[in-house]
Nucleic acid binder design. Structure first.
Lengths: 241, 241
DNA sequence: TTTTAAAATTGGACCGTATCAATTTTCAAA
DNA sequence: TTTGAAAATTGATACGGTCCAATTTTAAAA
């Protein structure tokens, strides 16, 4: 796919070598040696090593070298966190359960001031308002309200919206949603939450709201997801700089 | 502190300019212009912009420019681990409120099976059990239960634990906690949550649990944090690979 | 006016170099 | 043998350059 980038090639090769236990002393060759071994610039080596370090696979010590994180080999599952694709059809299917979608609302409205700034729209632009209930094995798990600019997908229909919009984009329009900026919090459930998600009054919802971006950086969807609390689990590897 | 680095200086300046709304059109100057304006190399500009992009503060579109993420301004959170925060104590202080700690329990127990795998311990190892109530301006906001291997900090005391453990490590032992693996979810509040955090029965807690690592990759603490729901807002830039 | 193709703009990848800072190694002096 | 300063090692920061790719702008053609 995109593996023709120099630093990615080296990244993958180093990763493989680490798992093949090619560095039993837990110490990688120094950067200058790697530079000449791979025949690339030191910047590319550093870039690859930085990715590995950020993923917790190696750690670096100035003056002494780059080392394999012993924990990574022994307890690899710990580091195999899912960057959390909650809210995407695919990640639900990955869970082994059968996903379902019930469209609660599909309409077109003028973009509010807030949407104009968040989605980079002009004042005369319109957006779809898409409200869906998501199910897993017929169990309701999430109320999703999304706003998508008409001009990005003018042909959107209720039928398309009954499935995965992201998959539609990828299959039919060759555009990919690769990034999102999400804000995650907990809230008491509202009456509507309780009815739609089968919650009792003391049970909360997890709220994930934010923007989904296309791979070219265009803000694509403004989304608000209210999840049954048992179905929200967000994993993250966090840097505490 | 470390702000004498070129890219960090620019990073902070750009951050300030963004929050001062110096780019009302949400578009930053292009990289080459920034390069000549700041009188530094384009690499340094790129590095600063990349940090901003990774934090979700800006996003970039090749061919068109670099833009401010409008949502970031609205969603700056209390427990924001991104950016330049150290531990929980520091990230609270960063918000302008006065942090407080009340120690609920400080004891030593044998490591459970789970702790043994997560903290990389042997079956005969012991851990501190540290239970603390965290306050902001005297308001209780979080119940924190942490488990730390004795052998890492044999001299830990109730006094030390009344302050920031991470700061103690950094000041006195020259060790830094740089990473954590966190799992974030929502739960109904328990009786104890309600009493300690002043919650009513329908109000939930946000739960953040996981492992904190030292900079050399050693797992340092197994932690469980139950937050008053109003104080938990977690921002994340998510890559949907 | 609309369409289309060329040009300019703008971020991305990569290279090679110089200098600095933390750590380890070496080796002479005590 | 032990100590301690100098040297070597090794990652970090920064510079400035080349070429490329996606997008927008410009301007000519229809």
């Amino acid at each position: 796919m995109l593996a023709d980038l120099v630093y990615k090639t080296i990244l993958k090769d180093l990763e493989k070598r680490i798992f093949d236990n090619e560095f039993p002393a837990k110490k990688l060759p120094d950067e200058r040696t790697l530079t000449s071994q791979y025949g690339v610039s030191r910047s590319s080596i550093k870039r690859a090593l930085n990715v590995l370090a950020n993923e917790g696979i190696v750690f670096k010590k100035r003056g002494s070298g780059t080392f394999v994180n012993p924990l990574y080999l022994k307890n690899r599952s710990l580091f195999n966190y899912e960057g959390s694709n909650l809210g995407v059809t695919d990640s639900m299917r990955a869970n082994g359960k059968r996903p379902g979608i019930k469209v609660l609302d599909f309409s077109v409205i003028p973009a509010t001031k807030e949407m104009q700034t968040d989605l980079f729209l002009a004042s005369e632009d319109f957006v779809y308002r898409i409200r869906r209930l998501r199910l897993l094995d017929d169990q309701p798990v999430m109320i999703e309200t999304g706003y998508i600019p008409i001009k990005i997908v003018p042909e959107l229909s209720r039928t398309i919206v009954s499935g995965s919009i992201f998959n539609y984009l990828e299959d039919k329009k060759n555009q990919t949603v690769t990034k999102s900026f999400l804000s995650i919090e907990a809230q008491p459930s509202t009456k509507e939450d309780q009815e739609l998600l089968n919650l009792s009054s003391n049970e909360p919802v997890g709220v994930m709201s934010g923007i989904f971006f296309l791979d070219d950086g265009t803000p694509f969807e403004l989304s608000n997801m209210r999840l049954h609390y048992k179905y929200m689990k967000y994993n993250a590897l966090v840097e505490l700089k």
